[in-house]
Design a protein around this nucleic acid. Structure first.
Lengths: 202, 202
DNA sequence: TATAAAAATGAACTTTGTTCAAAAAAGTTT
DNA sequence: AAACTTTTTTGAACAAAGTTCATTTTTATA
């Protein structure tokens, strides 16, 4: 019995998340139905609620998995022998590629909204920082003028800006960057944000 | 009878959207309930469906209004006597301020997801381009190396990147940029993206 | 084998969106 | 003004989903 759940329950939880993940990947989080999950997982409707708070909790579990896979993808994208510029571009390209290849799952992370009053559990919040941390070292090298809080702040800004470009591109009801141009535009963005400073006038 | 709706229906539609808008501003789109709208608007439940497809349609109407107000806010933010750099920063600051001051309404735009198969009506899609268009002139001035499609593409990239930074900051389950630092970080981003090129090496 | 604890079940309840036949109101014709 | 037609409004009824919980079944323990 680990994590407050017996082995039996752990297995059930895993099965439920597996099924939910497949459904989100296929049809988006909006297509998730408790009854469908129960049927596909081969359990009774009520069983789901013995391992999960509610449907939002199911989506949050799926989202945590996606974030962890994204983290792995980013780590795998970093070239062993590249310089800081290479690393930056590889991370950005990795992000773009992951998003495009996991569209529904990736979108589910950013479109989930909880009812007023509810907030995300700590185990889920913990899945975000690793995404940022990989940026800090190469950014520090390229922007030696930044350190400490300013550096970590800028890393988040850079991450968020790349995220925004991908996000808008995928948005579907917008004059976003077409996906053919995504990599190039993101590269330009990374380029601009990592180029060493020559004392801006304002 | 304009727009396919009689005056009577137009008024009902307006009343419905008014009520919905207030509710989204107050509690987010997740708090929208058809029965609440009917009660507050003083009409029967079924009446709503005589002027609107479904609840998504209601949210889309609210979102269109928000986009139009955002457009106005951006136009109003541009200084009459500023140079291109001033205009760029004013637009970015305008976007940040609008988002922070209209958090729930602004969030509703970007978290709405339609069921598979449905797509947004043209009248809603038309509300996005005006947001981008204001960027093109000043960007063209600052980046004379860009023109035509490349220029409009870069404008969208710039818009989207700023959006991403604000979006993450507001995300709530993330190491985003804290709102005190938002304006400064967005300025740095705009700065980087508008600084004239000095022939990047890669 | 008997007893206790844990797990699984699915019917029932709740909330919400959506439809539609009927009633009411407004408009038109004679 | 009365009769008729069209438009609008209504709310009961239905449907789809999430959630609960008393009961049953399974598993573990004595």
């Amino acid at each position: 019995m680990i994590d407050g759940l017996s082995k039996k329950k752990q297995e059930l939880l895993t099965r439920v998340i597996d099924v939910a993940e497949a459904e989100v990947a296929e049809s988006g989080a909006i297509g998730l139905k408790a009854r469908d999950i129960a049927k596909t997982a081969g359990v009774a409707l009520g069983s789901i609620y013995t391992v999960v708070e509610d449907m939002d909790d199911v989506v949050t579990h799926v989202n945590s998995r996606t974030l962890q896979r994204l983290g792995s993808a980013l780590r795998a994208a970093v070239p062993a022998d590249g310089d800081a510029v290479d690393v930056m571009h590889a991370l950005a390209a990795g992000y773009v590629t992951f998003a495009l290849e996991n569209l529904n799952l990736w979108t589910a992370i950013f479109t989930q909204t909880l009812p007023a009053g509810k907030s995300y559990p700590d185990w889920h919040k913990a899945d975000y920082p690793p995404l940022i941390e990989q940026i800090i070292a190469p950014l520090s090298e390229l922007r030696p003028d930044l350190e400490g809080d300013a550096l970590s702040l800028r890393a988040r800004t850079l991450f968020a800006s790349v995220h925004g470009v991908v996000s808008m591109s995928v948005f579907g009801r917008f004059v976003g960057v077409p996906s053919e141009a995504l990599h190039a535009e993101v590269n330009a963005l990374v380029e601009a944000m990592t180029r060493g400073l020559e004392a801006p006038k304002r």
